[in-house]
Amino acid sequence: MRDRPDIPLNALRTFEVAARQGSFTRAAIELRVTQAAVSHQIARLEDALGVALFRRTPAGLVLTDAAQTIFPVMEHSLDAMARALDRVAGGRHEVLNLGVVTTFATGWLIPRLSAFERDHPGIALRLSTHNNRVEIAREGLDAAIRFGTGRWPGVAAVPICEAPMTPLCAPAMGQLPLTELGHHRLLRSFRADEWPRWCAAAGVPCPPLTGPVLDSSVALADLAAAGHGMALLPLPMFQDALAAGRLVRPFAATVTLGSYWLTTPEDRRMPPAALSLLNWMRARMG
């Protein structure tokens, strides 16, 4: 058996959370202790190592060189320990903590969860939704599904599927001629270039855009289905609403402004459960 020094596990866990959160206050919230307790554990670890681990700046905590050496090792080790404990406690299940952009979650993944669980009984999915802004490590996730170009700093991204966008609306508006597009409210997301780019693809001038701006395609779809305007939406995520007749597609033109991606921190290997989910989703969409 290899001899090991007295390893301060509680202090190391506190250090990993504080380094990941970038704040003693947020670390205290995650650990459900006081900020003073976090400070005490960090001071204990610094005394044991004989080095400083954090520098306070106006922008927040900054890791020292010593902390940057320790942090990735601790993060990887604690993640591995958590997965092993989850497998034991959960009847040998591999737990995958997955963040999912809400449109993909409600429009595709959640309706098919029972099928995934049937096909992969050894994987337990723990889902949380986000609005396309997610910090995987800081939020304690293993991976995240998001929409965009696939270029995010510090992230490795693998494509799941393309997401061509087209206007969808309530059935009462479904006979709208393309030349009368400007006579109806065009519901807007926070991406200001979506309607101009779709209009360019359709070969029509883009009318003036007014009204509220929403950061959720699901909310846009609900407004459109209620007859409050026309929403530019990712077609694959609203097939169920189209099949049910809640929304209709008045025009054939589409524009691709991004895809859905499975993302993981670039300094980590993709967990086997995430790779299984990726392959399963691709096969289902294929």
Results as ranks from 00 to 15, higher is better:
139 E>C: 10
95 V>R: 08
148 G>Y: 03
110 I>N: 11
102 T>M: 14
104 F>D: 00
119 D>E: 13
114 S>L: 15
147 F>Q: 04
139 E>S: 15
148 G>I: 02
106 T>E: 13
99 G>R: 00
109 L>P: 00
144 A>S: 09
104 F>V: 01
141 L>T: 06
115 A>R: 14
143 A>S: 02
147 F>C: 05
147 F>N: 02
94 E>Y: 13
99 G>S: 09
96 L>C: 07
123 I>H: 05
105 A>K: 00
128 S>M: 14
110 I>W: 08
98 L>E: 07
105 A>T: 01
116 F>D: 05
151 R>M: 06
122 G>P: 06
108 W>N: 03
87 R>D: 03
88 V>Q: 09
137 A>V: 14
113 L>Q: 15
100 V>H: 05
109 L>V: 06
105 A>E: 02
130 H>V: 04
93 H>S: 12
91 G>F: 01
116 F>Y: 11
109 L>K: 04
138 R>Y: 11
108 W>D: 01
139 E>H: 13
129 T>G: 09
115 A>W: 08
112 R>P: 00
128 S>D: 09
151 R>C: 12
134 V>N: 00
139 E>G: 12
114 S>G: 09
150 G>C: 05
106 T>I: 03
131 N>V: 13
102 T>C: 15
106 T>P: 05
130 H>W: 05
136 I>W: 05
103 T>A: 15
97 N>P: 09
132 N>E: 07
147 F>A: 03
132 N>A: 10
148 G>L: 08
98 L>F: 07
128 S>L: 11
117 E>L: 09
91 G>E: 02
91 G>W: 03
112 R>W: 06
113 L>P: 10
107 G>D: 03
87 R>L: 08
141 L>D: 05
147 F>T: 05
145 I>H: 04
108 W>I: 01
134 V>L: 06
115 A>Y: 03
120 H>R: 10
125 L>H: 02
103 T>Y: 06
106 T>Y: 09
139 E>P: 11
146 R>G: 04
141 L>N: 07
151 R>E: 06
111 P>T: 12
117 E>A: 14
126 R>W: 15
96 L>G: 00
122 G>F: 08
101 V>P: 04
106 T>M: 12
122 G>M: 12
141 L>P: 06
135 E>M: 09
123 I>L: 02
95 V>Q: 10
122 G>E: 14
145 I>S: 01
135 E>I: 06
119 D>A: 13
125 L>A: 07
106 T>V: 11
146 R>W: 11
88 V>T: 09
99 G>Y: 02
103 T>P: 06
117 E>R: 13
108 W>Y: 10
132 N>L: 07
151 R>V: 07
137 A>Y: 06
89 A>L: 13
150 G>K: 01
149 T>S: 14
123 I>Q: 04
98 L>M: 05
